[in-house]
Amino acid sequence: MLEGKFEEASLLKKVVESIKDSVQLCNFVCSEHGITVQAVDDSRVLLVSLLIGNEVFSDYRCDRNITLGVDLKSFAKIIRCGGNDDYLTLIAEDSPDSVTLVFEDKNSDRISEYSLKLMEIDNEFLKIDDMDYDSVIKMPSIDFQKICRDLSTLSESLQILITKDSIKFMAEGETGNGSVILKPRTDIDKPEQSITVKLNNAVNSTFGLKYIADIVKGTSLSNQIVIKISNRTPALFEYKLQSGYLRFYLAPKFED
């Protein structure tokens, strides 16, 4: 049996809102370590990998592995019914055909209970090994979101160039071009404002902005985003959770 209680419903709300436009049907695999999701979007360009570690929950028990096949659009509708500050408990039997969500308002005795029907979802699992990346950058997630949104007004593609002392984001379109250059900086008072670059090799990679527009929906999950890029391989965009992560793997675009 699964019983996982979140101190605040807002965390699961944010997670679901962050991924529901990338993938619709996905299996939430629950084990003693927490909940994991891996799913690929229909175009097979973007992969979502989620770990909500058991330490995120104020109470957590899961005696044996349980898979919850979830339609995220329906899940999002139910999860919006609870308040952000409510306790949220997920409950499922060992071989469930539904999952129960219990919201508890901390300021009153109100308890709301919803159940979501589960589905058999037959998705392929991709094996992703730990890779050495040419470059790893860490920057404020909100800045990355703004840069991508601004440049998406000009082009469908975002070019990222990384050297040891700068990160350059570029977009070239029919109506004009744009670029934003960032320099590494350490902010001791506000570490979440820092920008770091670890470089093994200079990077010049291009990605589809429509996928990046979905990735930056994870912005509210973490102050910082970690971007790991190698030339000619998928890049990893990561929002760290208190225990766990939301990762997106995005395949690059190449010059024809």
């Binding site: 992969l47 991709l126 010059e255």
Partner: peptide
Amino acid sequence: GRIQFDLYQYFQRE
């Protein structure tokens, strides 16, 4: 023009 690659060109199915 640019070609969009897909993830199955890099990652193996388990």
